[in-house]
Design a protein around this nucleic acid. Sequence first.
DNA 1: CTTACTTCCGTAGTCAAGTACGGAGTCAAG
DNA 2: CTTGACTCCGTACTTGACTACGGAAGTAAG
Lengths: 147, 147
Amino acid sequence: MENELENLTIGALARTAGVNVETIRFYQRKGLLPEPDRPYGSIRRYGMTEVARVRFVKTAQRLGFSLDEIAELLLLEDGTHCAEARALAERKLADVRDKLRDLTRMETALAGLVRACRARKAQVACPLIASLQDAARPDLPASGKRK
Amino acid sequence: MENELENLTIGALARTAGVNVETIRFYQRKGLLPEPDRPYGSIRRYGMTEVARVRFVKTAQRLGFSLDEIAELLLLEDGTHCAEARALAERKLADVRDKLRDLTRMETALAGLVRACRARKAQVACPLIASLQDAARPDLPASGKRK
DNA sequence: CTTACTTCCGTAGTCAAGTACGGAGTCAAG
DNA sequence: CTTGACTCCGTACTTGACTACGGAAGTAAG
């Protein structure tokens, strides 16, 4: 035992997760990462669970989630009560599916452009905007100030 | 002619695109949105092209792109030269596919949680983090400071 | 033990993406 | 031709997500 990867200092945790030490501490303050109590006047130690958590935060950010939203996702991970969990999960799932839809459209448009370019068709217009346009959020168009 | 939707003031543009007027002006300063010249000492007018552009920016943001990245995507839309366009499009496409992969994994995990919850299995643990963990970026783990 | 690096913690600064403000000019209804 | 709403433009403030700083305490190697 006494694994390399299960007795990390905050610095080692940061390095293996690919972030700054300050970021770890910042996430702890925000409640995104538990702050283990320090064994009697000593320094805190971390394991792979924490590494995975930090990486998850970073990945979710890349996918357009804010830290607050990520906190909610982590609630699910940590096991909330069934009723609330389900409602939350369903909302997040819908959100994820919206993103998937839009990303897929972007993929199609980009792939089309690359193909056209490869085929040396001089006419290179990328209907990227158009790809996301239609069927876009049929929500209240009158003074619809979502926020 | 003289369509409702082709002679918008900045305020109307903002309203139909679902953003603040100041945001429009901010995007213009950043070069994300063209600033049409004002017909001799008068005010600027906008059309559906601009509405679509603003909406595109907002959607791309939701998908985790920064304004700088979005500016690049818009370059494609506006038709850069083939060689550069293709290189850029290929990079963006790879990026989009990475996101798709991760989002799909999140979808699976969330859908699983919802299903479990529906089935009233008390044991509700959402392996959300785990779903993104493996096969996660096999890039330089030593001092890998992506930014 | 000393010395050099870390950790710890609080406070302050930075950068991206807006948002707000205020005064001067424009417009369209009455 | 005035009045109220809106545009224009510059500058300043805010929020989210870090990043830096500095002094006291912990730790690992020589």
